[in-house]
Nucleic acid binder design. Structure first.
Length: 742
DNA sequence: CGATCAGTCTTTTTT
DNA sequence: AGACTGATCG
């Protein structure tokens, strides 16, 4: 028997050896899931399975990287050839090769949530809808996202009477229209949002048999980590890819499913059993991570959930310390008590800071801890929801790169066109959008033909200079390597000067971030085993990185992060903060059993991160929206049997007061103007525009029938003034127009 | 067009 | 309390 197999227990080893066919590995917290997955892959390669034919999908980029390293230590360089990554990054890679089939440029941009919301805001503005009323950008976005994650496209949505009716009755009748317009706008910008990466991959496999064939035959073995957190599209995609070989191995723990708000669906596990009736089920129930107290307390917690697969974790580890409950007066007090305990652990028990984590429900809670830690000189690393690449100054420079690579990218253009200030304000940009809409072309097309349009000469000059600069950047990107091109753009755009002029502490921080971005590009171009070192490849990679992917957990610092980002990690000591009603469980999630059970699974995840010591903290008062609130201890604390718990003085007797309920201010409903939806006929064939003359009756691909009132200009600048029956008078640049003579 | 100021709204969680 | 928006003025 191979040496690495000897290190496994019987359940683990069987799960490794049975790599053919469909497998469901139900792996409890701390049961050696990653070890099984990596050993299984190594074992496959040892048994002459071609590394190129293995696809392994993980939850984070970091997990993929670590898994690759671990496989490599067993089987060597072959591990480099395995396709390993997150759903999003692997599919983005596939789409980059195949995007042309669905009408996208291969250098398509990936829109992050901010970009998506900004697109929605722009649409709401054009449609004169109130972004604070019924149509909140974030609400629209999450609804669109939910649709995409459940494979409901605009046509499906419109045909679904239930959805349409519920929109009507809730006053959101125009949602479907916004959904379509949002998609159209992204498409026109050559951009895909996170959900499109999944949906478009699905479409690709579904609509192009040759593509499906190609990937089915390329990936003979598919492995999925954290399967409980996959959503419908993700499952549909892997089902398609694995359909011919049926070698699909999924690993997961239903008790750790914490992403249903993102469309994750525990039902995938049930569907998997139905779709692959031949599957073998393996259960990993021995916990190697935590003490008896922690394992049994976590079992107390999770047994309150009704919906779960039967399994029982056990451990051979020591009984360990009791779980300590810390009661604090305020959030600052909570942070101080935590900091104090951390210093004690560090001094008296010689526990490294890097072995300690503070976990909380919401990112906003980090602040108090940061302050306390700074005051007491405790080094910490903050894993936030905003990654390095989402900081404003970094995104600004990235936007230059994005736009140079994909000049259809409107969101990028919006960021850079007047930054640094060039005297191109909102009004001008709004004009450009109107011109682009009228001409059914991109804003970049308009800028390049700006002389044909009615706009002040000052603006024309500035825009022409801008276009000249962008074109010089485009040449740089073609001729130089990613780093040199990036350096040139950061200088010549004026961004560097803008940053270095700002001598405030924040300004210096921003300047450093931009320098760090350039260093990251440098490192990217010098990296081994990355074949595509273009700036475009760099952009794609960083748009899918999370903050956790960027952290190095090796330096000796205490880790601060949300429970969500702690998934998959473990620490010798864990503090779970803010265990109060309306915070953990969240106020938003106590209305239904399903939501509450998800909060409980989240708490379960938090507790099971701890190896040796666990502290559960709560405060009796907390500042929220500038108001002091009284807090009740979390109901979850009562779910742990008292024999596993040790209270600090008076911890259990929290003051119980009903929190004040903030009454919402009555908002006046905006008057909605009527606007005709625009239907663009994709199959429309225009006549030769040079034959057009004043007085002709014509048909336009988007605006329908009209009459030419006037034509002026020559060459590319030739424009027609047209009166449309449905849209009134418009000035249209003939270069882009699709017009038929009637 | 851009800077400043007042008023509004915010909190889940993330690829 | 702090970020963000929109209105007003230079």
């Amino acid at each position: 028997m191979k040496n690495y197999l000897k290190e496994l227990n019987d359940q683990q080893r069987i799960a490794v050896e049975n790599y053919q066919g469909a497998s469901l590995i139900i792996a409890g917290a701390g049961s050696g899931k990653t070890r099984v997955l990596t050993t299984r892959i190594a074992y496959m390669i040892d048994n002459h399975i071609d590394a190129f034919s293995i696809l392994a999908l993980t939850f984070t980029n970091k997990a993929a990287q670590e898994m690759r390293e671990r496989v490599e230590t067993i089987v060597g360089v072959d591990a480099k050839n395995i396709w390993m990554g997150t759903f999003h990054s692997v599919f983005a890679r596939i789409l980059r090769a195949e995007a042309f089939r669905i009408g996208y440029p291969n250098n398509f941009t990936i829109y992050d949530t901010d970009d998506s919301k900004s697109v929605i805001k722009a649409i709401l503005k054009e449609e004169n809808l109130d972004p604070k009323g019924t149509y909140k950008p974030s609400a629209i976005h999450s609804r669109i996202s939910a649709c995409k994650n459940s494979l409901i496209k605009p046509d499906d949505y419109e045909n679904n009477i239930e959805l349409m009716d519920s929109d009507k009755s809730s006053g959101k009748a125009r949602f479907i229209e916004l959904y379509r317009k949002y998609n159209a706008r992204c498409f026109r910008s050559g951009a895909m949002d996170f959900d499109d990466l999944l949906l478009n991959t699905y479409d690709l496999l579904n609509n192009f048999p040759d593509v499906l064939y190609k990937y089915q035959h390329r990936f003979n073995y598919v492995l999925i980590d954290e399967f409980q957190d996959t959503n419908v599209v993700q499952y549909m995609i892997i089902k398609k890819i694995a359909a011919s070989t049926r070698n699909l191995c999924v690993v997961g723990d239903d008790s750790q499913s914490i992403y249903s708000f993102r469309g994750a669906n525990i039902r995938n596990i049930l569907d998997f059993e139905k779709d692959f009736p031949e599957l073998k089920v393996f259960k990993l129930e021995q916990n190697y991570r935590s003490t008896v107290n922690i394992v049994e307390a976590s079992d107390n917690i999770i047994s309150n959930n009704k919906y779960r697969l039967p399994k029982k974790l056990w451990t051979n580890n020591a009984a360990g310390n009791k779980i300590k409950i810390l009661k604090a007066d305020t959030e600052a007090d909570e942070a101080n008590i935590t900091a104090f305990n951390i210093l004690n652990l560090h001094k008296n028990e010689n526990i490294a800071f890097s072995d300690i984590a503070v976990l909380y429900r919401t990112n906003a809670q980090s602040r108090a801890f940061e302050e306390a830690f700074r005051r007491l000189g405790i080094d910490y690393r903050l894993v936030g929801s905003i990654s390095f690449y989402q900081r404003k100054e970094v995104k600004d420079l990235l936007a230059y790169f994005r736009f140079v690579i994909n000049p259809a990218d409107e969101e990028a253009l919006k960021r850079i066109i007047n930054y640094p200030a060039r005297g191109i304000g909102d009004t001008t940009f709004a004009h450009l959008i109107v011109f682009a809409n009228d001409n059914q072309c991109t804003i970049w097309d308009i800028i390049n033909n700006i002389n044909a349009f009615e706009i002040s000469n000052r603006i024309k000059t500035v825009l022409t200079e801008f276009a000249f600069m962008i074109k010089s950047f485009q040449i740089a990107v073609k001729q130089k390597d990613a780093f040199e091109a990036a350096k040139q753009m950061s200088k010549e755009s004026g961004l560097i000067r803008l940053m270095s002029d700002d001598k405030s502490p924040e300004g210096i921080g921003r300047f450093e971030n931009v320098q760090n971005l350039l260093s990251a590009i440098k490192a990217f171009t010098e990296r081994e085993n990355t074949e595509d070192k273009s700036l475009a490849a760099f952009l794609q990679e960083v748009s899918l990185l999370t903050d956790a992917d960027n952290q190095d957990f090796k330096t000796d610092k205490v880790t601060l992060m949300t429970v969500h980002s702690a998934k998959g990690l473990e620490f010798r000591v864990v503090f779970v903060a803010g265990l109060e009603e309306n915070l953990f469980p969240s106020m938003m999630s106590v209305d239904t059993r399903e939501e509450l059970e998800e909060e409980r699974r989240l708490f379960y995840v938090a507790v099971t991160r701890a190896m040796e010591k666990l502290y559960l903290c709560y405060a009796t008062t907390r500042f929220q929206w500038g108001n002091l609130r009284y807090c009740e201890p979390s109901r979850f604390l009562d779910e742990i049997e008292s024999k596993y718990i040790e209270y600090n003085a008076g911890a259990k007797q929290g003051k119980i007061k009903t929190p004040e309920i903030k009454t919402s201010t009555v908002q006046r409903k905006p008057v909605l103007p009527v606007r005709k939806p625009l239907f663009v006929n994709p199959d429309f064939k225009g006549d030769d525009v040079s034959s057009l003359q004043t007085g002709m009756n014509i048909e336009h691909n988007a605006f329908g029938n009209g009459k030419i009132l006037q034509i002026d200009g020559v060459g590319d600048s030739r424009m027609a003034l047209i009166y449309f029956d449905k849209f009134g008078q418009k000035k249209i640049l003939l270069k882009f127009a699709k017009i038929k003579i009637v």
